[in-house]
Amino acid sequence: MKKLILATVALVLGAGLAMADTVRMGTEGAYPPWNFVNDSGEIDGFERELGDELCARANLTCEWVTNDWDSIIPNLVSGNYDTIIAGMSVTDERDEVIDFTEQYTLPDPSSYLAMSDDLDVSSAVIAAQTGTIQASYIASSGATLVEFATPDETIAAVKNGEADAVLADNSYLVPIAAEDGDLMMLDADVLIGGGVGIGVRESDTELKEKLNAAILSMKADGSLNKLIEKWFEGSMATF
């Protein structure tokens, strides 16, 4: 028994002095088609495929983990994982806390999704996900903001009448509007935030450079554009 405990302690304390090149990729896993947990329980989506390709190009061993959106930045900063690859738009506010790599998508307009199209979005009740650029946009506009922890709940809020409309990335709403007959996109897109980049700790410049090089090489040979077309089916601009 004592030996067993000693061995466990040695394992916990001593293991892995070797390979330190494992990069833990943090994502939300609730934002199709960007990133989601598919029916076999694995992380899937545009960013999964992109991230795996970037890791291959940068010669990194990558491991995927999910984390709730509202604590995704604090957990990066405290070192629970090494990157945020979760459709996170680059904003000045976020850039103060973490660093971003090269952007891997162009700025995506935000759209309103509602049950009826005669809605005055400037005075309506609008749902948005907590901690998103859309939430801060609504908060500073005249409309009433109701926040939800997951993107899915914002849609549910519109469907059960708790909110009049939801403001979210166009790329997230397009597939939902296409499938649900009750919901429609309003003709009132707004352009907030920049493109999407991978978030890394500010102290982690080495990883940032590696990922930057990989993103630039994917941009150069057109494989990034192919991925965007595959997952967003034309609703997202290509480089």
Binding site: V12, G16, A20, T22, R24, V65, S78, G79, V97, E202
Partner: peptide
Amino acid sequence: RQGNDFVVCAQAKLPLSSAPQWLH
């Protein structure tokens, strides 16, 4: 503590970042 970051050396991470997911 570097600004917002809590940075310890790679060997002190718990669990190590190279550890399998089940350990995390």
